[in-house]
Nucleic acid binder design. Structure first.
Length: 420
DNA sequence: TCTGGGGTCCTAGGACCC
DNA sequence: TCTGGGGTCCTAGGACCC
Protein backbone atom coordinates (compact mmCIF):
# COMPACT_ATOMS: atom_id res chain seq x y z
CA UNK A 1 0.00 0.00 0.00
CA UNK A 2 0.98 3.61 -0.54
CA UNK A 3 0.00 6.53 1.62
CA UNK A 4 0.05 10.06 0.34
CA UNK A 5 0.33 12.57 3.15
CA UNK A 6 -0.39 16.16 2.24
CA UNK A 7 -0.40 19.22 4.47
CA UNK A 8 -3.62 21.18 4.27
CA UNK A 9 -3.19 24.69 2.82
CA UNK A 10 0.43 24.36 3.85
CA UNK A 11 1.76 27.93 3.67
CA UNK A 12 -1.38 29.36 5.21
CA UNK A 13 -1.25 26.74 7.97
CA UNK A 14 2.40 27.59 8.72
CA UNK A 15 1.48 31.22 9.25
CA UNK A 16 -1.39 30.21 11.47
CA UNK A 17 0.72 28.05 13.77
CA UNK A 18 2.29 31.19 15.19
CA UNK A 19 -0.83 33.30 14.94
CA UNK A 20 -3.55 31.26 16.60
CA UNK A 21 -5.69 34.40 16.60
CA UNK A 22 -6.11 33.70 12.89
CA UNK A 23 -7.72 30.29 13.34
CA UNK A 24 -10.87 30.08 11.26
CA UNK A 25 -10.06 33.45 9.68
CA UNK A 26 -9.28 33.80 5.98
CA UNK A 27 -5.58 33.90 5.06
CA UNK A 28 -3.74 34.21 1.77
CA UNK A 29 0.00 33.97 1.06
CA UNK A 30 1.51 35.90 -1.83
CA UNK A 31 4.31 34.97 -4.21
CA UNK A 32 7.64 36.81 -4.41
CA UNK A 33 7.24 40.53 -4.99
CA UNK A 34 3.83 40.19 -3.36
CA UNK A 35 2.64 39.36 -6.87
CA UNK A 36 -0.13 36.80 -6.76
CA UNK A 37 -1.87 34.41 -4.42
CA UNK A 38 -0.06 31.10 -3.99
CA UNK A 39 -1.83 29.71 -0.93
CA UNK A 40 -5.25 30.13 0.66
CA UNK A 41 -6.86 28.94 3.84
CA UNK A 42 -10.22 27.18 3.46
CA UNK A 43 -11.97 30.39 4.50
CA UNK A 44 -10.23 32.33 1.72
CA UNK A 45 -11.13 29.62 -0.79
CA UNK A 46 -14.75 29.86 0.32
CA UNK A 47 -14.65 33.59 -0.38
CA UNK A 48 -13.82 32.79 -3.98
CA UNK A 49 -10.16 33.86 -4.09
CA UNK A 50 -8.68 31.82 -6.92
CA UNK A 51 -5.19 30.35 -7.01
CA UNK A 52 -2.84 32.75 -8.80
CA UNK A 53 -5.04 35.79 -8.25
CA UNK A 54 -3.00 38.99 -8.82
CA UNK A 55 -2.74 40.77 -5.49
CA UNK A 56 -3.38 44.24 -6.88
CA UNK A 57 -6.67 43.15 -8.44
CA UNK A 58 -7.92 41.60 -5.23
CA UNK A 59 -6.75 44.23 -2.78
CA UNK A 60 -10.27 45.55 -2.22
CA UNK A 61 -11.67 42.07 -1.69
CA UNK A 62 -8.92 41.34 0.83
CA UNK A 63 -9.88 44.42 2.79
CA UNK A 64 -13.63 44.02 2.56
CA UNK A 65 -13.46 40.48 3.86
CA UNK A 66 -10.77 41.07 6.42
CA UNK A 67 -8.46 38.63 4.76
CA UNK A 68 -5.04 38.40 6.40
CA UNK A 69 -2.36 38.74 3.74
CA UNK A 70 1.20 37.38 4.07
CA UNK A 71 4.32 37.69 1.90
CA UNK A 72 5.87 34.30 1.21
CA UNK A 73 8.19 33.30 4.06
CA UNK A 74 10.08 30.36 2.61
CA UNK A 75 12.52 30.15 5.49
CA UNK A 76 9.56 29.38 7.74
CA UNK A 77 7.82 26.98 5.35
CA UNK A 78 11.00 25.03 4.60
CA UNK A 79 11.71 24.54 8.27
CA UNK A 80 8.14 23.53 9.10
CA UNK A 81 8.24 21.08 6.22
CA UNK A 82 11.36 19.46 7.70
CA UNK A 83 9.60 19.02 11.01
CA UNK A 84 6.57 17.38 9.44
CA UNK A 85 8.73 15.09 7.29
CA UNK A 86 10.83 14.04 10.27
CA UNK A 87 7.74 12.85 12.08
CA UNK A 88 6.43 10.99 9.05
CA UNK A 89 9.84 9.34 8.56
CA UNK A 90 9.30 7.54 11.84
CA UNK A 91 6.48 5.53 10.27
CA UNK A 92 8.54 3.89 7.53
CA UNK A 93 12.00 4.14 6.01
CA UNK A 94 10.36 3.99 2.59
CA UNK A 95 9.43 7.60 2.15
CA UNK A 96 9.54 9.90 -0.85
CA UNK A 97 9.39 13.61 -0.19
CA UNK A 98 7.48 14.65 -3.21
CA UNK A 99 7.24 18.36 -2.53
CA UNK A 100 7.52 20.84 0.28
CA UNK A 101 4.14 19.81 1.65
CA UNK A 102 3.58 16.21 0.66
CA UNK A 103 5.19 12.81 0.73
CA UNK A 104 4.50 9.22 -0.24
CA UNK A 105 4.98 6.44 2.30
CA UNK A 106 5.23 2.87 1.12
CA UNK A 107 3.60 0.58 3.64
CA UNK A 108 4.76 -3.00 3.41
CA UNK A 109 4.61 -5.95 5.74
CA UNK A 110 1.21 -5.21 7.21
CA UNK A 111 -1.20 -8.13 7.29
CA UNK A 112 -4.82 -7.98 6.23
CA UNK A 113 -6.04 -7.32 9.74
CA UNK A 114 -3.89 -4.28 10.22
CA UNK A 115 -6.02 -1.27 10.84
CA UNK A 116 -4.91 1.28 8.26
CA UNK A 117 -7.63 3.69 9.26
CA UNK A 118 -6.33 3.87 12.78
CA UNK A 119 -2.79 4.16 11.49
CA UNK A 120 -3.72 7.18 9.40
CA UNK A 121 -5.61 8.74 12.25
CA UNK A 122 -2.66 8.58 14.64
CA UNK A 123 -0.46 10.09 11.94
CA UNK A 124 -2.76 13.09 11.63
CA UNK A 125 -2.99 13.51 15.36
CA UNK A 126 0.74 13.30 15.94
CA UNK A 127 1.71 15.74 13.20
CA UNK A 128 -0.91 18.21 14.37
CA UNK A 129 0.14 17.91 18.00
CA UNK A 130 3.88 18.20 17.33
CA UNK A 131 3.87 20.88 14.63
CA UNK A 132 0.44 22.48 14.52
CA UNK A 133 0.05 21.56 10.86
CA UNK A 134 -3.12 19.73 9.79
CA UNK A 135 -2.61 16.95 7.25
CA UNK A 136 -4.71 14.64 5.10
CA UNK A 137 -3.87 11.03 4.37
CA UNK A 138 -4.87 8.99 1.34
CA UNK A 139 -4.10 5.28 1.28
CA UNK A 140 -4.43 2.91 -1.69
CA UNK A 141 -2.68 0.16 -3.60
CA UNK A 142 -0.88 2.47 -6.04
CA UNK A 143 0.63 5.92 -5.91
CA UNK A 144 -1.85 7.64 -8.19
CA UNK A 145 -4.77 6.04 -6.36
CA UNK A 146 -3.37 7.26 -3.05
CA UNK A 147 -3.45 10.73 -4.59
CA UNK A 148 -7.12 10.19 -5.40
CA UNK A 149 -7.81 8.92 -1.88
CA UNK A 150 -6.09 11.99 -0.48
CA UNK A 151 -8.35 14.27 -2.53
CA UNK A 152 -11.38 12.57 -1.02
CA UNK A 153 -9.95 12.75 2.50
CA UNK A 154 -9.36 16.46 2.11
CA UNK A 155 -12.63 17.30 0.42
CA UNK A 156 -14.76 15.41 2.93
CA UNK A 157 -12.79 16.06 6.11
CA UNK A 158 -15.89 15.91 8.29
CA UNK A 159 -16.91 12.43 7.12
CA UNK A 160 -13.41 10.99 6.76
CA UNK A 161 -11.54 12.65 9.61
CA UNK A 162 -8.83 13.45 7.10
CA UNK A 163 -8.06 9.82 6.22
CA UNK A 164 -9.47 7.86 3.30
CA UNK A 165 -8.55 4.40 2.09
CA UNK A 166 -9.19 2.82 -1.29
CA UNK A 167 -8.69 -0.85 -0.63
CA UNK A 168 -11.18 -2.61 -2.83
CA UNK A 169 -12.47 -2.54 -6.38
CA UNK A 170 -15.80 -1.02 -5.45
CA UNK A 171 -14.19 1.98 -3.77
CA UNK A 172 -11.71 2.38 -6.60
CA UNK A 173 -14.43 2.57 -9.24
CA UNK A 174 -16.56 4.88 -7.15
CA UNK A 175 -13.64 7.24 -6.60
CA UNK A 176 -12.57 7.29 -10.25
CA UNK A 177 -16.12 7.98 -11.44
CA UNK A 178 -16.30 10.85 -8.98
CA UNK A 179 -12.95 12.40 -9.97
CA UNK A 180 -13.00 14.85 -12.86
CA UNK A 181 -10.32 14.24 -15.48
CA UNK A 182 -8.77 17.67 -14.98
CA UNK A 183 -8.23 16.86 -11.30
CA UNK A 184 -6.21 13.73 -11.99
CA UNK A 185 -2.58 13.94 -10.90
CA UNK A 186 -0.52 14.13 -14.10
CA UNK A 187 -3.30 15.41 -16.34
CA UNK A 188 -2.81 19.10 -16.86
CA UNK A 189 -4.55 21.80 -18.84
CA UNK A 190 -3.58 20.68 -22.33
CA UNK A 191 -4.28 16.99 -21.83
CA UNK A 192 -7.62 17.51 -20.17
CA UNK A 193 -8.66 19.79 -23.01
CA UNK A 194 -7.84 17.10 -25.53
CA UNK A 195 -9.53 14.42 -23.44
CA UNK A 196 -12.67 16.50 -23.09
CA UNK A 197 -12.72 16.84 -26.87
CA UNK A 198 -13.08 13.08 -27.21
CA UNK A 199 -15.69 12.86 -24.49
CA UNK A 200 -13.49 11.81 -21.58
CA UNK A 201 -14.58 13.74 -18.50
CA UNK A 202 -13.78 11.46 -15.58
CA UNK A 203 -10.77 9.53 -14.34
CA UNK A 204 -12.80 6.35 -14.83
CA UNK A 205 -13.43 7.07 -18.51
CA UNK A 206 -9.71 7.67 -18.95
CA UNK A 207 -8.92 4.22 -17.55
CA UNK A 208 -11.27 2.68 -20.13
CA UNK A 209 -9.21 3.95 -23.07
CA UNK A 210 -7.10 1.62 -25.13
CA UNK A 211 -3.45 1.36 -24.01
CA UNK A 212 -2.00 1.81 -27.48
CA UNK A 213 -4.24 4.80 -28.07
CA UNK A 214 -3.13 6.52 -24.88
CA UNK A 215 0.54 6.00 -25.64
CA UNK A 216 0.19 7.12 -29.24
CA UNK A 217 -1.92 10.20 -28.56
CA UNK A 218 -0.13 11.25 -25.42
CA UNK A 219 3.03 9.52 -24.21
CA UNK A 220 4.40 6.71 -22.09
CA UNK A 221 3.87 8.92 -19.04
CA UNK A 222 0.11 8.98 -19.49
CA UNK A 223 0.02 5.25 -20.23
CA UNK A 224 1.83 4.52 -16.97
CA UNK A 225 -0.61 6.78 -15.17
CA UNK A 226 -3.59 4.99 -16.71
CA UNK A 227 -2.34 1.61 -15.56
CA UNK A 228 -1.51 2.92 -12.11
CA UNK A 229 -5.06 4.23 -11.81
CA UNK A 230 -6.36 0.81 -12.84
CA UNK A 231 -4.73 -0.55 -9.72
CA UNK A 232 -1.69 -2.04 -11.43
CA UNK A 233 1.28 -0.65 -9.47
CA UNK A 234 3.31 1.07 -12.16
CA UNK A 235 4.73 4.09 -10.39
CA UNK A 236 7.25 3.28 -7.69
CA UNK A 237 8.76 5.22 -4.85
CA UNK A 238 11.46 7.48 -6.18
CA UNK A 239 14.86 8.02 -4.65
CA UNK A 240 15.81 11.55 -3.83
CA UNK A 241 18.55 12.33 -6.28
CA UNK A 242 20.85 15.22 -6.84
CA UNK A 243 19.31 18.05 -8.82
CA UNK A 244 19.82 18.12 -12.55
CA UNK A 245 19.37 21.83 -12.94
CA UNK A 246 19.39 24.84 -10.65
CA UNK A 247 17.62 28.07 -11.45
CA UNK A 248 17.55 31.58 -10.08
CA UNK A 249 14.95 33.69 -11.84
CA UNK A 250 13.03 36.77 -10.84
CA UNK A 251 10.30 39.06 -11.98
CA UNK A 252 11.43 42.64 -11.38
CA UNK A 253 9.50 45.18 -9.45
CA UNK A 254 10.14 47.69 -12.24
CA UNK A 255 11.04 47.47 -15.89
CA UNK A 256 14.66 47.48 -16.96
CA UNK A 257 15.63 48.94 -20.28
CA UNK A 258 19.41 49.13 -20.29
CA UNK A 259 21.92 46.36 -20.62
CA UNK A 260 23.78 47.64 -17.57
CA UNK A 261 20.80 47.06 -15.32
CA UNK A 262 20.37 43.56 -16.65
CA UNK A 263 24.06 42.78 -16.29
CA UNK A 264 23.77 43.57 -12.62
CA UNK A 265 20.74 41.29 -12.19
CA UNK A 266 22.14 38.44 -14.25
CA UNK A 267 25.43 38.58 -12.31
CA UNK A 268 23.53 38.31 -9.07
CA UNK A 269 21.48 35.37 -10.35
CA UNK A 270 24.65 33.61 -11.49
CA UNK A 271 26.19 34.18 -8.07
CA UNK A 272 23.19 32.58 -6.47
CA UNK A 273 23.33 29.58 -8.83
CA UNK A 274 27.04 29.15 -8.07
CA UNK A 275 26.34 29.11 -4.33
CA UNK A 276 23.63 26.49 -4.76
CA UNK A 277 25.95 24.42 -6.94
CA UNK A 278 28.68 24.46 -4.32
CA UNK A 279 26.18 23.38 -1.69
CA UNK A 280 25.55 20.21 -3.64
CA UNK A 281 29.26 19.77 -4.48
CA UNK A 282 28.65 20.04 -8.18
CA UNK A 283 29.99 21.96 -11.13
CA UNK A 284 28.01 22.76 -14.23
CA UNK A 285 28.98 22.35 -17.86
CA UNK A 286 26.38 24.62 -19.37
CA UNK A 287 24.26 27.58 -18.47
CA UNK A 288 21.13 29.24 -19.78
CA UNK A 289 20.23 32.90 -19.58
CA UNK A 290 16.81 34.23 -20.48
CA UNK A 291 15.20 37.67 -20.60
CA UNK A 292 11.49 38.43 -20.98
CA UNK A 293 9.56 41.60 -21.58
CA UNK A 294 6.31 42.09 -19.65
CA UNK A 295 3.86 39.62 -21.16
CA UNK A 296 0.91 41.31 -19.52
CA UNK A 297 1.54 44.58 -21.30
CA UNK A 298 0.00 43.81 -24.68
CA UNK A 299 0.50 47.44 -25.66
CA UNK A 300 4.28 47.17 -25.52
CA UNK A 301 6.54 45.36 -27.98
CA UNK A 302 7.39 41.88 -26.77
CA UNK A 303 10.76 40.17 -26.73
CA UNK A 304 11.56 36.83 -25.16
CA UNK A 305 14.82 35.06 -25.67
CA UNK A 306 16.98 32.48 -24.08
CA UNK A 307 20.38 31.14 -24.89
CA UNK A 308 22.26 28.09 -23.73
CA UNK A 309 26.01 28.27 -23.71
CA UNK A 310 28.34 25.35 -23.27
CA UNK A 311 31.12 26.25 -20.89
CA UNK A 312 34.72 25.54 -21.90
CA UNK A 313 35.15 23.73 -18.58
CA UNK A 314 33.00 22.63 -15.66
CA UNK A 315 32.92 25.13 -12.83
CA UNK A 316 31.05 26.36 -9.78
CA UNK A 317 33.10 29.51 -9.33
CA UNK A 318 30.99 32.58 -8.74
CA UNK A 319 33.42 34.68 -10.75
CA UNK A 320 33.53 32.40 -13.76
CA UNK A 321 29.81 31.73 -13.87
CA UNK A 322 28.96 35.41 -13.57
CA UNK A 323 31.34 36.16 -16.41
CA UNK A 324 29.85 33.51 -18.70
CA UNK A 325 26.30 34.52 -17.82
CA UNK A 326 26.99 38.13 -18.72
CA UNK A 327 28.59 37.05 -22.00
CA UNK A 328 25.45 35.06 -22.77
CA UNK A 329 23.23 37.99 -21.87
CA UNK A 330 25.08 40.26 -24.26
CA UNK A 331 24.39 37.82 -27.08
CA UNK A 332 20.63 38.07 -26.66
CA UNK A 333 20.06 41.56 -25.31
CA UNK A 334 18.25 43.91 -27.64
CA UNK A 335 17.81 47.61 -27.11
CA UNK A 336 14.32 49.08 -27.10
CA UNK A 337 12.38 46.72 -24.85
CA UNK A 338 11.20 46.96 -21.27
CA UNK A 339 12.44 43.88 -19.48
CA UNK A 340 10.41 42.51 -16.63
CA UNK A 341 11.86 39.11 -15.91
CA UNK A 342 15.17 37.31 -16.28
CA UNK A 343 16.96 34.28 -15.00
CA UNK A 344 19.98 32.04 -15.00
CA UNK A 345 19.70 28.25 -15.09
CA UNK A 346 22.74 26.02 -14.72
CA UNK A 347 22.69 22.43 -15.92
CA UNK A 348 24.83 19.47 -17.03
CA UNK A 349 26.33 18.75 -13.65
CA UNK A 350 29.36 16.76 -12.65
CA UNK A 351 30.47 16.15 -9.09
CA UNK A 352 33.24 18.43 -7.93
CA UNK A 353 35.89 15.74 -7.60
CA UNK A 354 35.04 14.17 -10.90
CA UNK A 355 35.82 16.92 -13.35
CA UNK A 356 37.13 16.13 -16.79
CA UNK A 357 40.14 18.33 -17.43
CA UNK A 358 40.41 19.85 -20.86
CA UNK A 359 43.50 20.36 -22.93
CA UNK A 360 43.56 24.11 -23.35
CA UNK A 361 41.40 25.84 -20.83
CA UNK A 362 40.47 24.86 -17.30
CA UNK A 363 38.83 26.41 -14.30
CA UNK A 364 41.08 28.62 -12.29
CA UNK A 365 42.27 26.40 -9.42
CA UNK A 366 42.69 29.41 -7.15
CA UNK A 367 38.94 29.93 -7.27
CA UNK A 368 38.33 26.73 -5.33
CA UNK A 369 39.84 28.03 -2.11
CA UNK A 370 38.59 31.53 -2.83
CA UNK A 371 35.00 30.27 -3.04
CA UNK A 372 35.44 28.33 0.19
CA UNK A 373 36.56 31.52 1.89
CA UNK A 374 33.65 33.53 0.47
CA UNK A 375 31.10 30.91 1.50
CA UNK A 376 32.52 30.83 4.99
CA UNK A 377 32.48 34.61 5.31
CA UNK A 378 28.91 34.75 4.16
CA UNK A 379 27.96 32.07 6.68
CA UNK A 380 29.69 33.90 9.51
CA UNK A 381 28.76 37.46 8.71
CA UNK A 382 25.50 37.18 6.85
CA UNK A 383 24.44 36.52 3.31
CA UNK A 384 25.80 38.65 0.51
CA UNK A 385 28.48 40.21 2.71
CA UNK A 386 31.01 39.40 0.00
CA UNK A 387 29.84 40.41 -3.43
CA UNK A 388 31.17 40.78 -6.92
CA UNK A 389 31.85 44.29 -8.12
CA UNK A 390 29.34 43.72 -10.91
CA UNK A 391 26.55 43.25 -8.39
CA UNK A 392 24.52 46.04 -6.93
CA UNK A 393 26.44 47.33 -3.92
CA UNK A 394 23.75 49.47 -2.37
CA UNK A 395 20.62 47.44 -2.09
CA UNK A 396 20.72 43.90 -0.87
CA UNK A 397 17.13 42.98 -1.43
CA UNK A 398 14.87 44.50 -4.00
CA UNK A 399 11.93 42.25 -3.53
CA UNK A 400 8.66 43.65 -2.36
CA UNK A 401 7.71 41.85 0.84
CA UNK A 402 5.43 44.12 2.73
CA UNK A 403 3.64 41.50 4.78
CA UNK A 404 6.48 39.22 5.74
CA UNK A 405 6.01 37.29 8.96
CA UNK A 406 8.93 36.65 11.34
CA UNK A 407 11.20 33.64 10.86
CA UNK A 408 9.87 32.12 14.06
CA UNK A 409 11.74 28.83 13.83
CA UNK A 410 15.02 29.69 12.12
CA UNK A 411 16.06 33.07 13.52
CA UNK A 412 16.82 33.53 17.19
CA UNK A 413 15.65 37.12 17.19
CA UNK A 414 12.27 36.07 15.83
CA UNK A 415 11.31 33.49 18.43
CA UNK A 416 7.83 34.15 19.75
CA UNK A 417 7.36 35.67 23.14
CA UNK A 418 4.91 34.03 25.49
CA UNK A 419 3.08 36.42 27.73
CA UNK A 420 2.60 35.20 31.25
C1' DT B 1 1.29 51.04 -11.78
C1' DC B 2 0.78 46.29 -9.97
C1' DT B 3 0.44 39.41 -12.59
C1' DG B 4 5.87 33.81 -8.85
C1' DG B 5 9.68 30.41 -8.72
C1' DG B 6 11.82 26.01 -9.24
C1' DG B 7 11.86 21.72 -10.89
C1' DT B 8 11.20 16.88 -13.91
C1' DC B 9 10.39 13.98 -17.89
C1' DC B 10 9.36 12.73 -22.79
C1' DT B 11 9.32 13.21 -27.87
C1' DA B 12 10.57 14.44 -32.45
C1' DG B 13 13.88 15.58 -35.48
C1' DG B 14 18.46 16.38 -36.97
C1' DA B 15 23.29 15.18 -37.07
C1' DC B 16 26.29 11.85 -36.87
C1' DC B 17 28.47 6.94 -36.89
C1' DC B 18 29.59 2.35 -39.42
C1' DT C 1 15.14 3.88 -64.22
C1' DC C 2 16.65 1.69 -59.83
C1' DT C 3 20.87 4.38 -54.19
C1' DG C 4 20.27 0.49 -47.17
C1' DG C 5 19.89 -0.47 -42.49
C1' DG C 6 20.70 0.14 -37.88
C1' DG C 7 22.04 2.72 -34.41
C1' DT C 8 23.44 6.80 -30.83
C1' DC C 9 23.52 11.39 -29.16
C1' DC C 10 21.93 15.99 -28.69
C1' DT C 11 18.63 19.75 -28.51
C1' DA C 12 14.39 22.41 -28.49
C1' DG C 13 10.00 22.44 -27.21
C1' DG C 14 6.18 21.00 -24.73
C1' DA C 15 3.90 18.80 -21.20
C1' DC C 16 3.52 18.13 -16.25
C1' DC C 17 4.14 18.91 -10.89
C1' DC C 18 4.07 21.80 -6.40
Amino acid sequence: MFALVDCNNFYASCERVFRPDLNEKPIVVLSNNDGCVIARSNEAKALGIPMGAPAFEYEKIFQQNNIQVFSANFALYGDMSQRVMNILSEYTPNIEMYSIDECFLQLTGFDAHFNLQQYGNTMCKKVLQYTGIPISVGIATTKSLSKVANKIAKKYTKQTGGVYIIDNEEKRLKALKWLKIEDVWGIGRQHSKRLHAIGITTAFAFTQLDNAYVQKQFSIVELRLKQDLQGIPTLGLEEVQAKKSIATTRTFENNYTTVEELIERISTFAVSCAEKLRKQNACCNSLMVFIHSNRHRKDLPQYNRSIVIKLPFATNSTIELAKFAVQALKLIFKQGYAYKKAGVIVQDFVTENNIQQTLFENRNPKHISLMKAIDQLNVNFGQQKIRLASQDQKRVWKMKQEKLSPRYTTNLADIITVHT
